[in-house]
């Protein structure tokens, strides 16, 4: 089973490199978020809320980079559905579960590889993690990339209309991105969202960002175990739901 999953995943990973130009554009955008947006915004933020905006935002960009790259697989799955490549995929000598898991793992690989360069950047800009913190960072990256890859794949199969697919993905993308702590700290989230603040603080992107901030030494008082468990629950729920949706839509006609 594991080898079939890896074969499917490696196919998706190979295809990822064919988008090297798209990737270059994404890298420029994410680096620009740190060295331009972060640097300039650092001169405008309230220092009592965020003493150093670059150190604050860099772990957030780690989440964002992983999220964008894992999410990229959804577009291809959507195109496959429109062009009926799914019939070819279903005819492969692998079980449907292996196919689905292989796609999720393929998306996750993309995220992990893309994020690795930004991990080095975070080490340089924020701080050097301890060996234990590296384990937490690795756990966070693996789970978040799997969850986002699954979510993106499932969303792309909801409709065959290409524009609608892109729009649904974008709406979910922005919802997750805006309702997270990537760009703003917990105090501001509490002030702005009031009773809804816990929903923002415990969204998958926020949990991952909090764990990265702890891992790179920006935050000290973090309940790491609870956050890790919660991220695990999110990932399991999202993967089960995504598998059900993807499997159902793979065989649906019209």
């Amino acid at each position: 089973m594991a080898s079939s999953i890896l074969v499917i995943a490696s196919r998706d990973l190979k295809r990822f490199w064919s988008y090297k130009f798209w990737l270059a554009g994404q890298v420029v955008m994410n680096v620009a978020d740190i060295v331009i947006f972060g640097l300039l915004f650092n001169n405008m933020v309230n220092r009592s809320l965020i003493p150093d905006y670059i150190k604050f935002v860099t772990p957030g960009i780690l989440s964002l980079a992983l999220f964008i790259s894992s999410f990229s697989i959804g577009r291809e799955v959507g195109v496959e559905l429109r062009r009926e490549v799914t019939d070819y995929l279903l005819s492969l000598p692998v079980s449907r579960l292996e196919l689905v898991l292989g796609r999720f793992v393929g998306g996750a690989f993309r995220g992990l590889i893309y994020q690795s360069g930004f991990l080095v950047l975070a080490m340089l800009l924020v701080g050097q993690p301890s060996p234990a913190a590296w384990l937490v960072i690795a756990y966070t990256s693996i789970l978040l990339s799997l969850a986002m890859s699954g979510l993106s794949i499932a969303l792309s199969t909801v409709t065959r209309d290409f524009n609608l697919q892109a729009t649904i993905r974008s709406v979910v993308y922005y919802m997750l991105f805006f309702f997270s702590n990537i760009f703003y700290p917990t105090q501001v989230v509490s002030m702005r969202f009031g009773p809804l603040a816990p929903f923002v603080a415990y969204s998958p992107l926020s949990i991952a960002t909090t764990l990265y901030r702890w891992g790179f030494g920006y935050l000290r008082d973090v309940d790491v175990v609870s956050n890790m468990l919660l991220l695990g629950v999110w990932t399991i729920v999202l993967l089960i739901l995504s598998s059900v949706i993807y499997l159902r839509n793979l065989t649906r006609r019209g």
């Binding site: 405008m44 933020v45 309230n46 220092r47 809320l49 965020i50 805006f178 309702f179 760009f183 703003y184 700290p185 501001v188 989230v189 002030m191 702005r192 969202f193």
Partner: peptide
């Protein structure tokens, strides 16, 4: 959402 929240961060 994003605009109002990020504005709360700024003291210029």
């Amino acid at each position: 959402v994003f605009g109002t929240t990020i504005s709360m961060l700024v003291r210029y």
